[in-house]
């Protein structure tokens, strides 16, 4: 689709807003609707739009395979580590109240949702990449 200039321009205008909206949904999830899962999917949708318009090879340069693989595991690890931090600080697994005096729950939920978002985005993008890669040959 590289030759369709209208698609290219519209996608270029749209993608930053999609990614920004994903970040908004991610970090605003404890105030309004949304959260890590939705944010991850929206972020992945932005990258998928990029892949559809600019091709898999360009998108692979933006999100290298190794980075994606690290992110897939990294999000889950972040979730587990935040949970373990609760034990280390003398409370129960996944109890965030000990992380800070008053807003411990808040910080814990924010970090955990970040882990969810990172893993979901990386998994969706990876699955899409292997699908497209298989479709080419």
């Amino acid at each position: 689709m590289k030759k369709h200039s209208i698609l290219r321009v519209v996608a270029k205008i749209l993608i930053p807003f999609v990614l920004l909206f994903a970040l908004y949904v991610q970090f605003h999830g404890d105030f309004g609707p949304g959260g890590g899962f939705q944010a991850g999917v929206i972020f992945a949708a932005g990258i998928i739009l990029y892949t559809l318009v600019f091709g898999l090879d360009t998108a692979r340069e933006v999100c290298p395979k190794r980075v994606l693989e690290c992110l897939v595991a990294g999000g889950l690890l972040l979730y587990g580590l935040v949970g373990t931090l609760g034990i280390l600080l003398g409370d129960r697994f996944l109890d965030y109240s000990v992380l800070a005096d008053h807003s411990g729950q808040h910080i814990g939920i924010l970090l955990v949702e970040l882990g969810v978002g990172v893993t979901v985005a990386a998994v969706v993008v990876s699955i899409f990449f292997v699908f497209v890669d298989r479709g080419r040959h």
Binding site: G29, P33, G35, S103, Q105, H106, G108, I109, V112, E113
Partner: peptide
């Protein structure tokens, strides 16, 4: 110290 969106609070 609590989260206004109770869906997020329950899930996370």
């Amino acid at each position: 110290g609590h989260v206004p969106n109770m869906v997020t609070a329950i899930l996370a």
